[in-house]
């Protein structure tokens, strides 16, 4: 019932209202934006940090290989990743493997402009069918659950390695891979989008702490290396 309500709401809200609402949003780490900009460094040991706020995120529960998974894949335009660490892309989404039957579809960077989460959730969830005959699966709007930090530069891996015990060396963690892990006791997703670019997705309530933790971990790279 609630799902149907939100689907109707999403259809009746005009783009204008959505963009007004979008202009009023404040991201979880908005207050750190200046600090992020100042902390960035260039060069051999350079590392930069920015927040990519408001990415559309859909939480997906479906067992791969079932009709529910096929329906979600068709609606998203991307297959569900098969194994731990893998991601897939398509239809304006990257789909991250969270668990054997749990996935997170993250919208491309342009998805942040409008508040697409509810409408997209309704669209993808509708392919699972009506209540009563719904395929066993779920699609939930998680756009406000996590914010996205992007750490890039030659020293990005060194910064993350201070708090992530998973082996981030390129031999075991390649571009296009994403894992669920813990960054200094905080549950996060770590997603390597390019060779020297990592996304860290903490929950919104941890955004301030993780942002400050990253700033602190980055600090040493603004000075010449001490031998």
């Amino acid at each position: 019932m609630a799902l149907k309500g939100s689907a109707v709401m999403a259809e009746t809200i005009s783009e204008e209202t959505l963009s007004l609402a979008a202009s009023l949003r404040r991201s979880p780490a908005a207050r750190l934006a200046k600090a992020f900009a100042v902390a960035g460094t260039e060069g051999e040991r350079g590392v930069r940090l920015r927040e990519i706020p408001f990415l559309t995120q859909l939480g997906i529960r479906a067992t791969p290989g079932t009709p529910a998974a096929a329906a979600v894949e068709a609606a998203l335009g991307a297959p569900l990743p098969a194994i731990h660490g893998s991601t897939t892309t398509g239809g304006g989404y990257s789909v991250l493997w969270i668990g054997p039957d749990e996935f997170l579809a993250v919208g491309d960077e342009g998805s942040a402009d409008l508040d697409r989460g509810p409408a997209e959730t309704a669209r993808v969830a509708a392919t699972l069918g009506e209540a009563g005959s719904r395929l066993p699966g779920a699609v939930v709007d998680l756009s406000a659950n996590r914010t996205t930090f992007e750490l890039s530069g030659p020293a990005a891996r060194l910064v993350l390695e201070k708090g992530v015990s998973f082996d981030l060396h390129p031999r075991s963690f390649r571009a296009g891979q994403a894992i669920v892990t813990v960054l200094d006791h905080v549950p996060v997703l770590v997603w390597k989008t390019e060779e020297e670019t990592f996304r860290v997705l903490p929950r919104a309530s941890f955004a301030d702490h993780v942002g400050r933790w990253l700033l602190d971990a980055m600090r040493e790279f603004s000075a010449p290396e001490v031998h």
């Binding site: 668990g99 749990e102 894992i179 669920v180 892990t181 813990v182 549950p187």
Partner: peptide, 13 residues
Amino acid sequence: FAERWVHNGGCRK
């Protein structure tokens, strides 16, 4: 000893 464990910091299974 046969034990239960949960990977709550990862896949939550």
